[in-house]
């Protein structure tokens, strides 16, 4: 793979991560990360939607009338999300109950719309698919790290399996949304310190 295409996938994993650098998709990252299984399911769902919406938009990019391009992007994304939601309801019923509205809210996840508008509208299908995949994986990486920390400290378990001794009392703060804010904040700090990428004042 040429270096340029390669960096399309790897950049969003850390240096241009959609959550910790671009600050997109924070809402769902707070909501579904109390436990690993929901975070993993959400990660797969978002990566799938992002990759396929980038592909479809990119294929259509020369025929989409400019006046209605955002509405078209929305229609494509919404259809993909509903499809994913239907599949979850059929094949992962328990998890889909826990994720409830958050799968539907992928439609409004700024990452998906943002990549369609910023990348897929200007680039050929192959690069767009890689961009979608990279951003999806970048989102997933943060989600899974946050869920790992929250479930471990919050309940002493990982994916429902108790790993800390039974005497561990659990930490209620980590289970509720403010705990996710703190963990994500620390991650952003850590990542920006490591990559030396600071906001310009």
């Amino acid at each position: 793979m040429p270096a340029k295409l390669n960096s399309i996938v790897t950049d969003p994993l850390s240096e241009n991560n959609p959550i910790t650098v671009q600050m997109l998709g924070i809402c769902s990252a707070l909501a579904v990360t109390a436990q690993l299984p929901t975070a993993i399911t959400m990660s797969i769902a978002v990566t799938l939607v992002l990759t396929s919406s980038n592909l479809i938009i990119s294929v259509l990019r020369n025929v989409i009338p400019p006046k209605i391009r955002m509405i078209v992007e929305m229609v494509v994304i919404a259809s993909l999300v509903i499809t994913v939601d239907q599949f979850l309801k059929a094949f992962a019923f328990e998890i889909s109950k826990q994720l409830s509205v958050f799968v539907g809210l992928i439609i409004t996840n700024c990452i998906v719309m943002g990549r369609a508008e910023a990348f897929a509208m200007q680039n050929p299908p192959k690069a767009s698919v890689l961009d979608g995949l990279g951003n999806g994986l970048g989102y997933s990486a943060v989600l899974i790290i946050v869920a790992f920390i929250r479930e471990l400290i919050g309940a002493g378990s990982l994916a429902g399996v108790q790993v800390l001794p039974d005497s561990y009392p659990g930490n209620g703060l980590m289970v509720i949304a403010p705990g996710a804010f703190i963990v994500i904040g620390l991650l952003i700090w850590l990542q920006r310190t490591l990559t030396k990428k600071y906001e310009e004042a």
Binding site: V63, I64, P65, I68, V72, A78, S79
Partner: peptide, 23 residues
């Protein structure tokens, strides 16, 4: 523009109806 909008809406709703009735 109108033609394109009509086609994309039709295609998406057909696809969704298909998925829904299959599952």
């Amino acid at each position: 523009t109108i033609k394109f909008a009509a086609i994309i809406c039709l295609a998406c709703s057909m696809a969704l109806a298909g998925v829904q009735s299959a599952l």
